[in-house]
């Protein structure tokens, strides 16, 4: 059984249809990359999976380990193991990064019937995990993402993932805004978290990231659908030929023959 099954997923905002029938199966231990032009619906898919209520699911279903996910509140999905590294991590002045993360971890532990971690134990664990992405202790003491640079925010997302140890991690353009060294660090952190029990969906615009985080599968989204799926080589081909090669104009709009193009 796949760890994540997305079946014929449709979603909209207001009366605007954004996802128009997504099918996606990700097995435990696998890493899938999703590419596709701006506005094709990648972040929407990620948000719908994480439970953002701005989006209305109009059709389809999502299963996590065979259990329906869409009826759960975002916090319940997190406790089931869903983690979204945001494309635009939110700044939350007044909420300390460490306090926030300990609150989150303990909330998840409560749901699982585990004992809560006290401040000292948590701190020790957090320090250990922060090394993975080389996030300085100073950032842990600041308000959540407040005044963090773009790259620092992305590292903070991966740091949170390391602490929360999700079953399904969705990384939405975690590579954008990173300099080359940071990209290596973050990719190294992500690779360190690859495990046979964990699935990852990596959304990116750049083949470069996939040199570091080597995916098992690559999907191309356009116009709210997955129009092409393939192996790693699909990303290389896209890099070389652009989206036009898949019948897309300037990376915009829907696939001309979306259905047929799918493998």
């Amino acid at each position: 059984m796949a760890l994540l099954s997305v079946r014929n997923l449709h979603a909209r905002v207001g009366d605007k249809d954004i996802l128009k029938g997504i099918d996606l199966e990700v097995g435990a231990g696998e890493v899938h990359a999703i590419m596709g032009p701006n506005g094709s619906g990648k972040s929407t898919l990620a948000s719908v999976l994480a439970g953002r209520d701005a989006y209305e699911v109009t059709k389809g279903e999502v299963l996590l380990d065979g259990k329906p996910l869409l009826e759960l509140a975002p916090e319940a999905r997190a406790a089931e193991g869903v983690f979204l590294a945001f494309q635009y991590p939110v700044e939350i002045p007044g909420v300390g990064n460490l306090h926030f993360l300990r609150t989150a971890l303990n909330a998840q532990r409560r749901v699982k019937g585990l004992e809560e971690l006290d401040a000292m134990d948590f701190l020790q664990m957090a320090k250990e995990k922060s090394k993975l992405v080389q996030l300085d202790a100073a950032f842990m003491n600041r308000s959540v993402n407040e005044g963090f640079s773009g790259g620092e925010k992305k590292r903070n997302e991966i740091f949170q993932m390391a602490v929360l140890e999700p079953r399904l991690a969705i990384l939405d353009e975690t590579d954008s805004g990173l300099d080359i060294d940071a990209l290596r660090t973050v990719a190294g952190g992500v690779n360190g978290l690859r495990s046979p029990q964990r699935a990852m969906v990596v959304i990116t615009h750049y083949q470069r990231l996939l040199d570091y985080i080597v995916p098992d599968k690559v999907h191309v989204m356009a116009g709210g659908r997955i129009i092409r799926s393939g192996g790693r080589e699909l990303a290389l081909e896209l890099e070389e030929k652009g989206y036009g090669w898949l019948g897309l104009q300037d990376g915009k709009g829907a696939a001309t023959k979306g259905g047929e193009a799918r493998r």
């Binding site: 953002r52 975002p74 916090e75 997190a78 983690f83 939350i92 909330a107």
Partner: peptide
């Protein structure tokens, strides 16, 4: 802030607790 609220909840913090955190913040 709805975005901040979703961010906290997406990490597993129950709605009521997230609201309290943001209110105190």
């Amino acid at each position: 802030d709805a975005q901040a609220l979703f961010y906290l909840r997406s990490r597993g913090i129950p709605r009521a607790e997230a609201e309290r955190l943001l209110t105190y913040a």
